[in-house]
């Protein structure tokens, strides 16, 4: 790829209460294509046209624990936005890791602050 893909961006509530369920939003600018095209006019099926590229896995860590794993296929959108909920059981950083089908890896992490 000509352009360098930047790490994902994550948004957390500024402060949460202990045991509160809060939302995490993750935005990742990554291209997605199946690699298929239809260059043959008489053909009804798609042929291989370019190498495929898509996000394969998203792993969510809360502190040291893996809390969620999202598995994706070539059907995923370009630049997807993920929203999911977690329960604030401890004060620890939240880390998301993305891996695409070419084996490239990105991560970003943010501290969760619990109101005392």
């Amino acid at each position: 790829m000509a352009e360098k893909i930047k790490p994902p961006r994550m948004r957390l509530p500024r402060k949460v209460k202990q045991d509160e369920v809060f939302k995490v939003k993750v935005r990742f600018d990554h291209p997605s294509f199946t690699g298929l095209g239809r260059a043959d006019v008489d053909e009804t099926k798609f042929n291989r046209a370019v190498p495929s590229r898509f996000i394969r896995n998203m792993l969510v860590y809360y502190g040291d624990d893996l809390v969620s794993r999202f598995r994706m296929s070539s059907g995923i959108a370009d630049d997807p936005l993920f929203t999911f909920k977690l329960k604030a059981v401890k004060q620890a950083p939240i880390k998301v890791v993305f891996v695409d089908n070419e084996g490239e890896r990105w991560e970003s992490s943010k501290d969760l602050k619990i109101k005392t």
Binding site: L66, V99, N101
Partner: peptide, 16 residues
């Protein structure tokens, strides 16, 4: 089409 899973992905698939 797709490179082999990273060690981290394999661990994640096994631990959840």
């Amino acid at each position: 089409l797709s490179v082999a899973p990273l060690a981290e992905e394999m661990t994640a698939a096994g631990t959840l």
